[in-house]
């Protein structure tokens, strides 16, 4: 009796094609319409996502809002939908926005977002660019103790005039919205700014990896609102898109991430983990030969 011939070359070719097949599968899934049994922003996520909508909706008329744009280039795709929804939400309630960055990556993203908002019609009376401030935490401490009366080009601005009329620097803002990342997270704001400017309300949009760090601050009320996971961001963005305008600055400019594509990616990861674990267990039962590597 002859044993079946193994063809390692063919197996290797299949393994090599697997990543391409995964990309094709995720691309195909992202093109699918909304599936009824999937709910990326449903359940408890929608409650958490509503916090930010309520916090922004509760701001006074024509509020002054400081947006700290400091996400990472790597994790920004995860929070881009929630970030753009938050900016649309702010403009929909008539906010006058000042944008600042403390990290180089955050500044690069801020420049792109400012250009997008200017194209959408944000004039100097609605949006002012405070630029990049080097020095990370020290720069944030410096900003908390200084008057803010000039934009990135050293020019005056109607928004900064309004801030100046309130007689305060950072404390003159009605809300600080921190779009966080690894280098500058809302934790820095709470540690460095809240003791110096106690009246300033801080809200945040962060990628999921920061959630264990952020959750205690949300629970303690030091963050008035937090969209800290992809489902919360999607729930928040969907809520803003449903109640917002269909054009101009109050429009959410993109559709939410595809839950079908995310489900496919997660199922593939689970499949690989289970297959690897089962294969390892079986080879362990076969004895020492199975452990060759």
């Amino acid at each position: 009796m002859t044993e079946p011939v193994r063809r390692p070359g063919r197996r290797r070719a299949w393994v090599g094609l697997a990543p391409l097949a995964l990309v094709a599968l995720v691309a195909a899934a992202s093109a699918l319409p909304q599936l009824p049994f999937l709910a990326l922003g449903g359940g408890p996520a929608s409650v958490a996502g509503d916090d930010l909508h309520v916090a922004i909706g509760g701001l006074p008329d024509q509020p002054l809002v400081l947006v700290d744009m400091d996400p990472d280039l790597g994790t920004y795709p995860e929070i881009r939908y929630a970030t753009r929804a938050a900016l649309a939400d702010l403009f929909a309630v008539g906010a006058r926005v000042a944008m600042v960055s403390f990290s180089p990556e955050g500044r690069a993203i801020a420049i792109a977002e400012i250009a997008r908002l200017r194209d959408a019609g944000a004039g100097s009376d609605r949006l002012v660019d405070l630029g990049f401030r080097s020095g990370s935490e020290a720069a944030l401490v410096q900003l908390a103790g200084q008057p803010i009366d000039r934009d990135v080009n050293g020019q005056a601005s109607p928004i900064l005039d309004a801030l100046h009329a309130r007689g305060a620097g950072l404390g003159g803002f009605d809300l600080a919205l921190v779009i966080g990342g690894g280098e500058m997270s809302p934790r820095t704001w709470i540690e460095q700014v809240e003791p110096r400017v106690p009246g300033l309300a801080v809200a945040a949009v962060t990628p999921t990896f920061l959630l264990p760090e952020m959750q205690p601050y949300r629970d303690a009320g030091q963050l008035v609102a937090l969209a800290g996971t992809l489902p919360e961001g999607v729930a928040y963005g969907t809520s803003v898109a449903a109640g917002g305008t269909t054009s101009g600055l109050g429009r959410v400019p993109e559709r939410p991430p595809s839950d079908a594509a995310i489900l496919v990616g997660m199922l593939v990861a689970l499949g690989v983990l289970i297959e690897s674990g089962a294969g390892s267990l079986l080879s362990g039962r076969r004895g020492p030969r199975g452990h060759r590597s």
Partner: peptide, 13 residues
């Protein structure tokens, strides 16, 4: 991964 699956309805909750 299982806990974060984006499933709707009662199982999702």
């Amino acid at each position: 991964l299982v806990l974060l699956l984006p499933i709707g309805g009662e199982p999702g909750v």
